Simulated assay, not measured.
Amino acid sequence: MKKILYVVIPVIVFSIIFVNAFFGHLIFLSETQQVMNKYSVYVHLLSDWQSDSKNIVFEVSNSWHKSDKRNDVNHVFDAESKEYNTNQLQEINGKSFVELKHEFSECQEEWQPMLYRKAVDTVRHEIEYVQGKQLSTDPDISVYPNIENRNYDNLEQQSKIKNGYAQFFPICTSKETTSYDYSVKTDNKDLGFDVYFVSSSTQRENFTSSEFDYYIDSGCFGQNKQSYSGSCKNIQKDSGLLIIFPDELKPWITKVTVNLYEVN
């Protein structure tokens, strides 16, 4: 009997993992109107950047409300029809970088996180809450403490980011005007980041000039932070979050965690 269990139990466990990995987004769809999308963006800075570290990883969670659609149409995301990765050689501030991101980053509707990842994220959330690194008790919503960069002042930060790297993250919404809660943190203890809610992705090219335009209401931006959470209201459909780092990254890799959550 024991020998049979030694075979049966691993088979059952493997089957659950297999089904969840390939079909979890179909089985475990949310019964609410909230959709959650998790993806990563990997950035490699080429040799013309001054940073010792040439690698930045953005871990992104984006939650938004489903649009009202006809019930007789299947809007579930078809993972098999998508290219999962795209390499994009780009340039900013006259310096080149390669961006690798998933197709999931383009606001695919009806996509849900796989159950095992949701369980891991919930446990991680609870641990961070006990440690004081997380202020929200809701495992689906992250709120990080407001931690200033103490290595140098804000005036120096604004000078540093003029030659820095900027990453844009679009919001996902079916509304023309909406509101978003957001949180950002980095494991880089040497530098601060700036974060702004901006009107469109074109502001990624404008942040070094007088044409840079962002939402100026309280909570819509943060400067020279290592951890920050805010709430921005009455933002337009094409808006998004812009995160900027100085070109002085030193660790082998800098990890940035980004959370976007649409508010009713």
Rank of each mutant, 00 (worst) to 15 (best):
residue 129 Y to W: 11
residue 181 D to H: 13
residue 155 L to T: 09
residue 114 M to K: 13
residue 189 K to R: 07
residue 178 T to S: 10
residue 187 D to V: 05
residue 215 Y to P: 03
residue 132 G to S: 02
residue 146 N to M: 08
residue 198 V to H: 00
residue 113 P to R: 07
residue 151 N to I: 10
residue 114 M to A: 10
residue 194 D to T: 08
residue 119 A to N: 07
residue 119 A to L: 14
residue 141 I to G: 04
residue 215 Y to H: 04
residue 176 E to A: 10
residue 150 R to S: 11
residue 114 M to T: 09
residue 174 S to W: 14
residue 159 S to W: 07
residue 135 L to F: 05
residue 165 Y to Q: 06
residue 216 I to L: 09
residue 173 T to R: 07
residue 121 D to K: 06
residue 166 A to V: 02
residue 114 M to R: 14
residue 221 F to R: 03
residue 109 E to R: 11
residue 152 Y to L: 03
residue 210 S to K: 11
residue 185 K to I: 11
residue 159 S to L: 12
residue 128 E to H: 12
residue 206 N to G: 00
residue 168 F to G: 02
residue 127 I to N: 03
residue 167 Q to Y: 10
residue 188 N to I: 00
residue 165 Y to C: 05
residue 161 I to Q: 11
residue 166 A to F: 00
residue 138 D to I: 00
residue 183 S to Y: 01
residue 181 D to G: 12
residue 108 Q to V: 13
residue 178 T to K: 04
residue 173 T to Q: 07
residue 189 K to M: 00
residue 183 S to E: 06
residue 121 D to P: 01
residue 121 D to C: 03
residue 157 Q to L: 02
residue 138 D to L: 01
residue 217 D to C: 06
residue 144 Y to A: 04
residue 126 E to C: 07
residue 167 Q to N: 12
residue 163 N to D: 15
residue 210 S to V: 11
residue 142 S to P: 02
residue 160 K to T: 04
residue 163 N to G: 12
residue 111 W to Y: 14
residue 200 S to T: 06
residue 166 A to G: 05
residue 174 S to Q: 14
residue 154 N to H: 08
residue 111 W to G: 06
residue 159 S to C: 04
residue 117 R to A: 04
residue 126 E to F: 14
residue 218 S to D: 15
residue 208 T to P: 03
residue 180 Y to F: 13
residue 138 D to S: 03
